[in-house]
């Protein structure tokens, strides 16, 4: 299932609607990285509220999206990881490492505003 990507001012919001296959995740990565360049976006929000499984492949792919987006000069924040999913991820040993997370879309937007509009330039 294709993940819709909404453009809202300088940000892109990818809102996952249902369970994703590996292929869907890879396609999301490709589309996001391409659109960050196309729209000169400074921030990306990936909403995973609808995901009830985040396995090692999904985690690895989200991590790679965030790294690629950062290489394009923009910030990524993952929002909406469900409590049960967070529990399973920790049991499995999965980490998002240096990837930003926020509770929900609203918090994610606030995070990006602080990150990208603060002093105009992202710190180290």
């Amino acid at each position: 299932m294709l993940v819709p990507i909404l453009k809202q001012s300088n940000y892109l919001i990818a809102s996952i609607q249902s369970e994703l296959s590996d292929d869907d995740l890879l396609r999301l990565r490709e589309n996001l990285v391409r659109q960050v360049s196309k729209f000169r976006s400074t921030g990306v929000i990936i909403d995973v509220t609808a995901l009830d499984v985040m396995d090692s492949f999904a985690t690895r792919t989200l991590r790679s999206i965030a790294h690629m987006v950062r290489l394009r000069g923009a910030e990524t924040v993952i929002v909406g990881i469900q409590p049960e999913v967070a529990f399973a991820m920790v049991q499995l040993g999965l980490r998002l490492e240096d990837i930003a997370t926020a509770l929900d879309l609203e918090e994610g937007l606030a995070f990006l505003d602080r990150k990208t509009k603060g002093d105009g330039r992202r710190g180290g």
Binding site: D52, V53, D55, E84, V85, F87
Partner: peptide
């Protein structure tokens, strides 16, 4: 419980992969 359901689904996902 729902947390256990997610854990089971995640383990299935890893092994199936």
């Amino acid at each position: 419980s729902s947390a256990e359901q997610v854990a089971i689904a995640t383990a299935i996902s890893e092994i199936a992969r």
